[in-house]
Simulated scan of single mutants.
Amino acid sequence: MDVTIHPAPDAGRASFTLPVRVYFEDTDAGGVVYYANYLKFCERARTEWLRTTGVVQNRLATEQNILFVVRSVAADYLRPAVLDDLLEVITTIDKLGRASLDFAQQVRRDGQLLFEARVTVACVASGAMRPTPIPPAVRAQLASLV
């Protein structure tokens, strides 16, 4: 998978870019990407970025009983993507809280903005599903990206 991590051009913070090809299964009856699939593309990008920094969510769940869960999403659908488009999902961490992360995400095609979202992800204890502080080692890794 060819991914890139680079400074965000507008904020000077690190950002992560994940290429995503649009397949037939991603489209609706009108031939455009089904709206919920943009959220799936964004989830993949967040997960892959965390993985590249050494934050492996499966390991956190099994070894520390910590999960990252989506708390809220605000999304804007600006232009449609269609079958065979090669998209870029660009992810930036806007804010690192004590027990949460705010992500800014964009989906672009040839530089053109198609979709953007703000996603808040909470750190929770897996048993109680209650907010818990982000573990110090994980927090240190994430802080280098803000």
Rank of each mutant, 00 (worst) to 15 (best):
V69L: 15
A45V: 12
G111T: 11
M1C: 04
E63P: 05
T132E: 06
A74S: 13
V119C: 11
D94G: 14
E43M: 09
G30C: 04
V73D: 06
F24Y: 15
V121P: 07
D10Y: 12
A75T: 09
D28H: 07
M1V: 10
L39I: 14
D28E: 10
I90D: 07
P80C: 12
A75D: 07
I5W: 03
A117S: 12
Q57V: 10
M1A: 10
P80A: 12
Q105W: 05
E43W: 03
I134V: 02
F103L: 12
L83D: 07
T27H: 01
L60S: 00
F16H: 12
V55W: 01
A61F: 11
E25H: 15
N65M: 07
R71L: 08
D2A: 11
T120A: 09
S15Y: 05
V56H: 04
A36C: 12
F16R: 12
Q141R: 15
A8P: 01
A143D: 06
N58G: 11
A8Y: 11
I66L: 06
L86R: 13
I90Q: 14
G31H: 05
E48I: 14
L86P: 06
L87M: 09
T17L: 07
Q64E: 01
V119G: 05
Y38Q: 11
T4F: 07
S72C: 01
G31N: 01
A75I: 06
V82Y: 08
A128W: 00
V3N: 04
R130E: 13
D110M: 12
C42L: 14
L18V: 13
